[in-house]
Simulated assay, not measured.
Amino acid sequence: MQSTAMRNSLFMEKMNGLLSNKKVAIAAVVMLVTALSMLVMAHAGTGGSSFKSVATRIEGWAQGDLGLAIVAGGLIFGVASMVFTGRGTVLAIVVGGAVALYYGIPVLVSIFAATGGNSVAKTLVVHGAHMAGVL
């Protein structure tokens, strides 16, 4: 019989050999992320009423006056940066951030709703598995 230390050592050697394959490692990470996201979605779908007021407040801030002030300040900074450096990358990043700020929260709410989240997670898993060459 093998000792526990010897079995653990053999197990770790097998896992190191298995995880050295990039496809297997990517598939394992995709499966882990999917499992965790489904756990979070299952928990979020069962009783999220306690955070509804906080979520509504944050969405109101992002799409209201606070979001507009953040976007305006970012645009002023982006235009000033573009004028002084001659490159428009900062301005493009700020415009992308403004779009993400305004439209991002409603998109996230619809993705992680109890009915829509599973189909998104399944699509991501299948696509990730195809990219890793598992399927």
Score class of each variant (00 low, 15 high):
79 V>N: 02
74 G>S: 01
124 L>V: 14
107 V>Y: 10
86 G>Q: 00
100 A>I: 08
102 Y>V: 15
86 G>M: 02
96 G>P: 05
21 N>D: 14
126 V>H: 06
71 V>H: 02
29 V>P: 02
131 M>C: 09
25 A>D: 09
43 H>S: 10
3 S>E: 11
14 K>H: 06
62 A>H: 05
24 V>H: 04
78 G>W: 01
95 V>Y: 01
99 V>L: 15
91 L>R: 01
11 F>I: 09
57 R>K: 10
1 M>C: 13
81 S>A: 07
110 S>A: 15
2 Q>W: 10
102 Y>H: 07
127 H>L: 15
87 R>N: 04
7 R>W: 10
5 A>T: 11
132 A>V: 11
50 S>F: 13
65 D>M: 06
62 A>W: 08
82 M>V: 00
80 A>F: 00
12 M>S: 10
14 K>P: 01
87 R>F: 01
110 S>K: 14
87 R>T: 10
89 T>M: 05
86 G>I: 04
119 S>P: 01
50 S>C: 13
78 G>T: 00
76 I>A: 10
69 A>S: 09
5 A>N: 06
78 G>A: 00
20 S>P: 02
89 T>K: 07
65 D>Q: 03
65 D>G: 03
99 V>S: 08
70 I>L: 15
19 L>H: 11
120 V>S: 04
64 G>K: 09
64 G>N: 08
105 I>R: 07
100 A>P: 09
19 L>F: 14
125 V>C: 09
99 V>Y: 05
86 G>T: 05
102 Y>Q: 02
43 H>K: 11
81 S>I: 01
53 S>A: 15
113 A>V: 07
125 V>M: 10
111 I>C: 10
108 L>D: 06
69 A>K: 12
132 A>M: 08
55 A>C: 13
88 G>F: 00
13 E>A: 13
101 L>C: 09
107 V>K: 10
33 V>K: 06
79 V>T: 00
22 K>C: 10
28 A>P: 03
72 A>H: 02
31 M>A: 15
128 G>T: 08
77 F>N: 00
95 V>L: 12
24 V>F: 14
120 V>L: 11
36 L>H: 05
116 G>M: 12
67 G>Q: 06
115 T>C: 03
119 S>F: 14
65 D>H: 11
24 V>L: 14
103 Y>R: 04
58 I>S: 05
27 A>V: 14
36 L>D: 08
112 F>R: 05
30 V>W: 04
49 S>K: 12
46 T>H: 07
75 L>H: 00
33 V>I: 15
71 V>K: 01
129 A>G: 10
13 E>S: 08
70 I>D: 01
21 N>G: 07
39 L>C: 07
86 G>E: 05
93 I>K: 04
58 I>Q: 11
103 Y>A: 13
13 E>C: 05
47 G>H: 10
26 I>D: 08
49 S>I: 08
121 A>V: 06
58 I>K: 12
69 A>L: 14
118 N>L: 09
66 L>G: 03
134 V>R: 04
51 F>N: 13
53 S>F: 07
53 S>T: 15
94 V>R: 02
27 A>I: 07
104 G>W: 11
13 E>R: 09
103 Y>S: 13
50 S>H: 15
